[in-house]
Nucleic acid binder design. Structure first.
Lengths: 192, 192
DNA sequence: TTCCTTTCTTAACATACATCAACGGCAAGT
DNA sequence: ACTTGCCGTTGATGTATGTTAAGAAAGGAA
């Protein structure tokens, strides 16, 4: 149960066995089934989640009720409404489960305690957020400067597994295009 | 000289006078004039900079030598190639000065020492990077789902000052459109 | 000032993507 | 087996943005 998350953390910081114990101690397991919501807008967000198994999507509904997928979370990813979590604001995102999933959660208060007791974790989460920042940045470059076909190819490279697990129109939404357009793009690619 | 950056830091964490002293002690002043480069690709990036006065642009050149502006940095902003800085990789970005500027720099080693001596700064920079992350996220939503006119209006709201300080084609580049398109958009807006 | 370079605007045409509408496959439930 | 609803595909058409080219405006240098 905890093997994967310990490996995950150990890729960034080094922990003694007792520190690992302490870390695991503050985690809680959360099972959630398909079509259920992990987070909904307006809620207070006091937890962030590591995905042990499953697949979720984080999306935002705009004024016109259009859905905009920000992130797919699969195994070894973290998910939450980080804006709400860090800044203590009501959630703006929906996080919905696409497959039955198993998560490990951390409560905000436990995290604060963890930072006090094992300062390395402050570093761990700073590095995590920095990496997320960098990958967001490259997504901006793609979305601003590349056409749909190139973005689709990048998506396929970056998430080869997700591509077979989630519906086509979800992918189109993530890419910022219509399902019809994605369909045409795929058609052209198969031909060549 | 140091008033602004101290106010800036104090908005996030509380420091004693002696901690402020220590922080200021590791800063170094850097003056740089228009058209000069703060950072160029391939360089080792061991510093990050706070803008006391002036204006810079951070951009990336792709395989086709197309320029993509990622950030404008003006007063009270931080700039650097953060990916290179945090992950100890060669710089990928150009950071070029658009106006004669005054910066305050921090060396990566000094920063590490600072984290040891005043752990609050680990928190400060984590929060900084989180905020940057959140604003990048909202830029993705805009770039994926909004049309150029809406993005231009958002830009004008978010950076009213920059808009009068930098060339039009820089703004077009930041928005991911051609200067001609921006020109058309502005024309329509004036009419209505 | 005048000249020269850079930046901005406009127009004509090309292209990519959105929109609208229809159809077919497929899975779930009856 | 039949129906129903969801999803993916396709075609016709509209709109926004890119491309190319030219000239106007603005700014710097002599």
């Amino acid at each position: 149960m905890y093997t994967k998350i310990l490996q995950h953390v150990s890729r960034t910081i080094e922990l003694t066995p007792s520190e690992k114990e302490e870390f695991i101690g503050i985690l809680f397991e959360k099972k959630i089934s398909k079509k259920q919501f992990l987070i909904q807008p307006g809620e207070k967000v006091v937890e962030e989640f590591y995905v042990v198994k499953g697949c979720l999507k984080a999306y935002y509904l705009d004024e016109m009720s259009n859905k905009h997928i920000l992130q797919f979370a699969i195994e070894d990813w973290w998910t939450s409404d980080f804006e709400a979590f860090f800044n203590e604001l009501p959630a703006q995102l929906h996080i919905e489960c696409l497959e039955d999933s198993v998560l490990l959660g951390i409560h905000k208060d436990s995290l604060a305690t963890l930072y006090e007791r094992i300062p390395q974790f402050e570093r761990f989460f700073r590095i995590k957020i920095t990496n997320a920042f960098v990958s967001l940045r490259s997504r901006i470059l793609s979305s601003l400067q590349k056409n749909s076909k190139q973005r689709y190819l990048e998506f396929c490279e970056a998430y080869p597994n997700i591509e077979q697990r989630v519906a086509n129109y979800h992918i189109a939404n993530y890419l910022g295009i219509k399902p019809e357009s994605l369909s045409r793009i795929r058609k052209k690619l198969v031909r060549t």
